[in-house]
Simulated scan of single mutants.
Amino acid sequence: MIIKEETIKVEEFQWENSLDIAGDKELFKDAIFFDLEHYVYKKPICIGVFGAAYYDAKENELRITQYMLENKYELKKMLNMAKDYFEKMSTVHKKKHIVTFSGNNDFIVINYLLNKHNIGYKISENFTQIDLQKKYEQEAGTSIGLKNLENIFEIHRESELISGSNLAKTFGKIMKDEEYFSRMPLEKKEKILLYNMQDVVSLFYIYVNWKKHVVKPVENKTEKEESINNTFN
């Protein structure tokens, strides 16, 4: 298994622009930013990459952790490492929330696999879940994909875009062929890890710059005119 720990300095931001949840604009300090790359065929098969990060306010850094599966025999080990990571985030770093983008599928996959492999851990009992796609839909009045939202937020990726279907095919081969990972070019492995890391980092920057870019829809002219007429009639 590839285990990657990385720390990156956070670009300047104003906490006043962050997403406001129940009057709390600093909730990001108590959150994990989380994204999985996984393979599902009729039911969840595996997690290919586990990616998570948290904000270190004292050092103004993002601390990123990634686990990448090399063969099917490592899946249970990865799930136990994921459990250990969440427990450490909760007990040591006092994190209370998990931020995702359209994270329902990720939670379905990891919860199914934790249960299947008899790993006694329930994420929902330890963290509240914040889905930025749902928040955007509520505030902007329309749904959107992560890459299009990155464009709105002027987030420029270092990584190339990889389709979900191509990732799924790769992890399917890893689960079926014990030697497939060793035959994969190093460049491909690094590309997948960088892609996942960018997803996680983007979640943070979208969260803390929310008010700069997410605008609630304005009433149309007819609705405004009716409101004015009702006021003066």
Rank of each mutant, 00 (worst) to 15 (best):
E70A: 01
E70N: 03
N71C: 10
N71I: 01
K72A: 07
K72I: 06
Y73T: 13
E74W: 00
L75K: 11
L75A: 06
L75Y: 04
L75N: 07
K77M: 11
M78D: 08
L79N: 01
L79H: 04
N80Y: 02
N80W: 02
M81P: 06
A82C: 03
A82W: 06
Y85P: 09
Y85L: 12
Y85M: 09
K88D: 12
M89I: 10
M89V: 10
V92T: 06
K94N: 06
K94I: 03
K94H: 07
K95S: 07
H97F: 06
H97G: 01
I98T: 00
T100R: 00
T100L: 00
N104T: 09
N104A: 12
N105Q: 03
N105H: 02
F107H: 07
V109F: 10
I110D: 02
N111T: 12
N111E: 14
L114K: 13
N115S: 14
N115Q: 15
N115D: 15
K116H: 14
H117E: 13
H117C: 07
N118K: 12
N118P: 05
I119E: 05
G120T: 04
Y121G: 03
Y121H: 09
K122T: 05
K122D: 09
S124W: 11
E125L: 03
E125Q: 04
N126S: 09
N126P: 07
F127K: 02
Q129P: 07
I130V: 01
I130S: 00
I130F: 01
D131L: 03
K134A: 12
K135P: 06
Y136N: 04
Y136A: 08
E137C: 14
E137A: 13
Q138M: 13
G141V: 02
G141C: 06
T142Y: 02
I144Y: 02
G145A: 05
G145Q: 02
L146N: 08
L146K: 04
N148T: 01
N148C: 01
L149W: 03
E150W: 10
N151F: 10
F153E: 08
E154T: 13
I155D: 14
I155A: 15
R157C: 15
E158L: 15
E158W: 15
S159M: 13
S159Q: 15
E160F: 15
L161W: 13
I162G: 13
S163M: 10
S163A: 12
S165R: 04
S165I: 04
S165T: 04
N166I: 09
L167K: 11
L167W: 12
K169Q: 13
T170Y: 11
G172I: 07
G172P: 14
G172A: 12
K173I: 10
M175G: 05
M175I: 08
M175Y: 10
